[in-house]
């Protein structure tokens, strides 16, 4: 049986979903990030001066782009897959001969697509405020896609366990957003006092943001290899967990 048809059916359905509701999915990040660049980058940033030898505006651009990728790849999968469960059209997939890995790949790639599209929109907005050039395209692109993959997988697992719409907003509001803000989007870890530097290093998002920053402007607070190893390790772990949950039918089947 040709599973690529099923995969592309899920993927295109997901892409149609978030593009159909673009005022909810693509417009808000454009407005929010324009405000970030205006307030933090332009108004406050001009008074901060250079960070690691680059202007504050250039320093925060990679972090803001990746923060958008994290939040949108996660929220796309968590809301879409939870709605699929809630409206019970998950049953359309379960009765059909679609292997679990195809279901997972379809939803995760849908999340990646939205994360990447929002990232590109935010990068485009940033060009209105600064003219950052990308120093290491390969590293920037790899971190961009791997981060979207990781958080799309995390969103999928959240949706599997969710029993109500409250359950799909708890993690983004109380875990992802704080970790993103504390992950060095707006500052360098070197600016933090002693013990806080150590605590900040326990935040996995810090590694992704810094690896992406290195890809874009060549500046990082962490080792790039460690960032890739950590992201890759999380992706492998979350993929295995997602497949196990689907196989057991947890949160999906009786």
């Amino acid at each position: 049986m040709n599973y690529s048809v099923a995969f592309f059916t899920i993927l295109f359905k997901e892409i149609r979903r978030f593009t159909r509701i673009w005022p909810q999915t693509l417009l808000p990040p454009a407005i929010t990030t324009a405000l970030y660049f205006l307030i933090f980058g332009k108004l406050i940033g001009d008074r901060i001066g250079l960070v690691h030898g680059v202007s504050y505006m250039d320093y925060i651009v990679p972090g803001i782009i990746l923060m958008s990728v994290i939040s949108h790849s996660y929220s796309n999968v968590v809301s879409s897959f939870y709605s699929t469960k809630f409206q019970r059209h998950i049953e359309e997939l379960l009765v059909a001969p679609v292997p679990n890995y195809v279901i997972l790949a379809g939803y995760v790639c849908g999340g990646i697509a939205r994360g990447v599209l929002v990232g590109v929109v935010v990068a485009g907005i940033s060009m209105m405020f600064t003219h950052t050039t990308i120093l290491h395209w390969d590293i920037a692109a790899a971190v961009f896609v791997l981060t979207a993959t990781l958080f799309a997988l995390a969103g999928f697992i959240n949706a599997v366990f969710a029993d109500s719409f409250d359950d799909i907003s708890i993690i983004p509001n109380f875990v992802l957003t704080p970790l993103s803000y504390l992950g060095g989007v707006f500052y360098s870890v070197a600016m933090l006092p002693g013990i806080w530097q150590k605590i900040a290093q326990a935040n996995p998002i810090l590694y992704m943001i810094n690896a992406f920053r290195y890809g874009m402007i060549g500046v990082s607070d962490v080792q790039i290899e460690l960032a890739f190893a950590m992201t890759g390790g999380f992706i492998v772990f979350l993929t295995a967990l997602s497949l196990l949950l689907l196989h057991k039918g947890i949160g999906i089947k009786n």
Binding site: V5, H89, V98
Partner: peptide, 23 residues
């Protein structure tokens, strides 16, 4: 148990896709 935000055509077409039927 179908997606009530999709058209009748999409509901049936998607199901065909899940069964691997080419477009």
């Amino acid at each position: 148990n179908f997606n009530q935000f999709e058209t009748s055509m999409s509901v049936v077409m998607n199901q065909a896709g899940y069964y691997g039927i080419p477009r």
